[in-house]
Amino acid sequence: MEKMSRRKFLKLGTLCAAGVSAAAIGASSVASAATTATTGTYQKNVKRLKGTAMGMVIDMREIDSEKIAELQKVCHAFHNVPNVPNEKDEVKWIWAEKYVNLFAGETTERLAEKFADKDFVALCNHCESPVCVRVCPTKATFTNDQGIVLMDMHRCIGCRNCMAACPYGARSFNFVNPRDYLDEVNYAYPTRMKGVVEKCNFCAERVAVGQLPLCVEAAGGAISFGDLNDPESKVSKLIAENFTLQRKINLGTKPKVYYII
């Protein structure tokens, strides 16, 4: 037998290895083709709330600090939002923020204290042009077909770019394991893990089956929810008839939460 040169031998060896791995990949793809999961079709619930730009109108004339605490309790209890005592690490979906803080830079200069210190409802604005969605490197946060800005917790890597980007401070990071700080557990909704970002989801899981968000229900008429693109919806009518404010519209994010003062 002619003696093989080392180079030739190595080349041959590499080719063999490549062949074997190609065969293995081929075999595995055949195997997976035979066992695809889908054996049915996916559908949306027929009762799902209709709309392409879900928004909220909050009538602050009818909501006080106690009411906000109640809304927060209902929301956080259902969504398993942890109650982290350390303020630095806190997680919140809906909370009370003073008027001067909520509308920082857009208030009047010599505002009477009773207005400046009035507690307002703060939550994610579900912007039409959300910065968080723009900056997210994995599309873990995205806008659904109803204009609700959602988090895919499975995909979030916890880079916190969205938190730096959000002009509304709506996002919280799980600095600790949230399960250690649940006062009570709702087994119908998942918790989160430490190291992911979360925020208000406009109760997408309820909207999908035709229910209003929990805070809307708990507010007893002071908060309205619906399609801002539909001129006949309750939210559109409220905006048409009342003086309303949005937060930081000069940033071009097009927030979908309106406040009646």
Partner: peptide, 29 residues
């Protein structure tokens, strides 16, 4: 320094799996 800043490093490669051209962090990576 990016890796130690990531909250869920197990999912780090989602950056490449779900490549997102409108994200600057994606282009950085």
């Amino acid at each position: 320094f990016v890796v130690v800043d990531i909250g869920s490093p197990m999912k780090l490669f989602n950056v490449y799996i779900y490549a997102t051209p409108h994200s600057m962090l994606f282009w950085d990576s």
